[in-house]
Write a protein that binds this DNA or RNA. Structure first.
Lengths: 351, 351
DNA sequence: CTGAAAGCGCTTACAG
DNA sequence: CTGAAAGCGCTTACAG
């Protein structure tokens, strides 16, 4: 910047004003400054700007566990939304540990992030952090900013299964203390309605699985009359699907299997998995927009260091019907290969 | 800092020296400064330090596509290695696009990162970036820093399959131009040896799959005598596995299926997938260490703005034998459920 | 062992 | 419309 000023015989202040386009400089000078800047390959120092303005233009992204298969969707959406808004994204991993989460938040704060979006570890409540925060969780978590409407997503899935005629369905979850899973299960039950019988099976978390098989005993469940297996995540659904297939139980001829989240493999397995997807792009945009609103109004009347919004945005989820669901077989007898493949219906996404 | 100086009646310089522990201050004063600092909840401004020292303490992580299922492992390992070394990590997503990759690198540079680790988009060569760079790709990519030894990983898998007695195996890849995939395939062929017949099938990339099934025709391949399907990624392996199961072909009784990368679901499906895993922690540590070595020796003799190392580190991959592989059935006739489950062998990982 | 001074590269009132 | 000055919070020679 001083190089530009020197080359042009003007002051650094003028260069700054010209480049920031705040209209305090004559059009001709602005033009001269601009061309000289690009001629010199000038790149402003965001560090110096940060020191002066007190804003770094960087946001923190705190994740409960980067290894979670849902993380790519979240990270990509947040990175994209932030960079569209001119912000950088610093990542921090809680590694599933609550102390690590606190520490990660601290490190981000030291680095002077202007705000952060936190996907909290289950059961954590985010207290005052000392900077604007947007929390992404479930609508049922207090102090939240934006979330997919997991309950309604479950309800859509429940209605889908009920409409196909399933009368006995097994719900599969992995964490009794997860708000997200409980919302999904609540929605599923509501969507299925009071007339369909359902049972919930809590299985070991996948991370803990040893790779030795650990059968869930789903074939027995099928024999006991369950015709649909609704998992609360695609990973569990995949586990169910392969276990059933392995046991010679046709999906969807004999039983239906459904998941949640539309993870990368759901569309790729045979039969492709019926699932429910959240619109991460929308969630990320809302979270980032809320954050930026607070950041850029800092210093005004409101106490900005606390929550970002009081009203939580509920983003609808979208049912994606694929081949893993169908009508239950009339009398529970296997009838492999006799079925016409499902045509994808309305909710279908083109990825 | 000035608050501490004022409270103690010393200069800011002394506070700085005391806190940085460079031994220019008397022990008693250091102690007084320290306790006053923590009493006041002093947090140093990394921004100011960055402006003064010219180093931000931030590294950039450039990924070809955050949505890639392998990304969580990479990001987690890099974040961990960097934060252990006291660095923050700014993420940048190329979204599979080469122009976006250049742009992302530019944004990182503007933000003053001290260096970056780049996982390049296939076929990209990273030119001079203007800051220290560590590239993670394959040993066969020139200008590389550290990589898993994909070729050797393929060879291990090939030997495993050959030892089981497979004589006709189908290799499955998704991208002819990928160095990683070509290395893996080269290794597989070498490991299988000249006596086993093998064919390579290039399938559509998963991202492009519509979810409507898109059968690969693997049942026909099995009928044609292929007894093993070695995919170059777990995602393709999963696709193969479910398609075969769906067609009533028992894995591993009739055919074996193998993947690559030990993605999250590999241990969870039935039968669990035999795969090869790279040690991301080691790769990340090497990449970060190489980067930091250059960063912290900046200004000394060597031209640090270019490559990080000339010698590339090859990190071995680890074969993980699970239930999806077994000896080929003697006469190609289905014999479901007649097989004793594989006991996991040596290479087994406890996650 | 300790302090006064300069400066990293910007932006922002404030004068002219 | 343009410029001189101050200052964001540090660190680093350089004196004392």
């Amino acid at each position: 910047m001083s190089a530009i000023a020197a080359a042009l015989g003007v002051s650094a202040a003028t260069v700054s004003n010209a480049l920031s386009g705040k209209g305090r400089v004559s059009p001709e000078l602005i033009e001269k400054v601009r061309s000289k800047a690009s001629e010199l390959g000038y790149v402003p120092s965001l560090t110096a700007r940060a020191l002066r303005t007190g804003r770094t233009g960087v946001l923190g992204l705190v994740l409960p566990d980067i290894a979670n298969p849902l993380f790519p969707q979240i990270a990509q959406a947040i990175e994209n939304a932030a960079s569209n808004a001119g912000y950088g994204v610093l990542i921090a991993d809680s590694r599933g540990d609550i102390a690590a989460q606190t520490e990660a938040i601290g490190r981000l704060l030291e680095r002077g992030v202007d705000g952060m979006v936190i996907v909290p570890r289950r059961g954590t409540r985010i207290a005052d952090v000392g900077c604007p925060v947007a929390v992404i969780d479930t609508p049922s978590t207090p102090g939240n900013t934006v979330a997919a409407d997991h309950w309604e997503g479950g309800a859509q899935m429940g209605r889908h299964l009920a409409a196909l005629g399933h009368a006995k369905v097994l719900l599969i979850g992995t964490s009794v203390s997860s708000n997200v899973q409980n919302d999904r299960i609540g929605g599923l039950k509501a969507g299925l309605g009071a007339r369909v019988e359902c049972d919930t099976m809590w299985i070991e978390r996948v991370e803990a699985v040893s790779g030795e098989g650990c059968p869930l005993g789903l074939a027995e469940k099928a024999a006991a009359g369950f015709t649909a297996f609704a998992a609360v995540s695609d990973l569990s659904a995949l586990r169910a699907l392969t276990e059933l297939q392995r046991a010679g139980i046709g999906v969807p001829e004999m039983v239906s299997v459904t998941g949640f989240d539309d993870l990368i493999w759901s569309a790729v397995v045979t039969p492709a998995l019926t699932t429910v997807r959240m619109d991460m792009a929308v969630i990320a945009d809302l979270a980032i927009a809320a954050l930026i609103r607070v950041i850029e109004s800092e210093g005004e009347e409101e106490e900005a260091a606390g929550k970002v919004t009081s009203e939580i945005d509920r983003v609808p989820m979208q049912l994606i019907v694929r081949q893993s669901t169908g009508a239950p077989h009339a009398d529970g007898v296997p009838n492999l290969h006799a079925r016409t493949p499902n045509k994808p219906t309305a909710g279908e996404l083109k990825p």
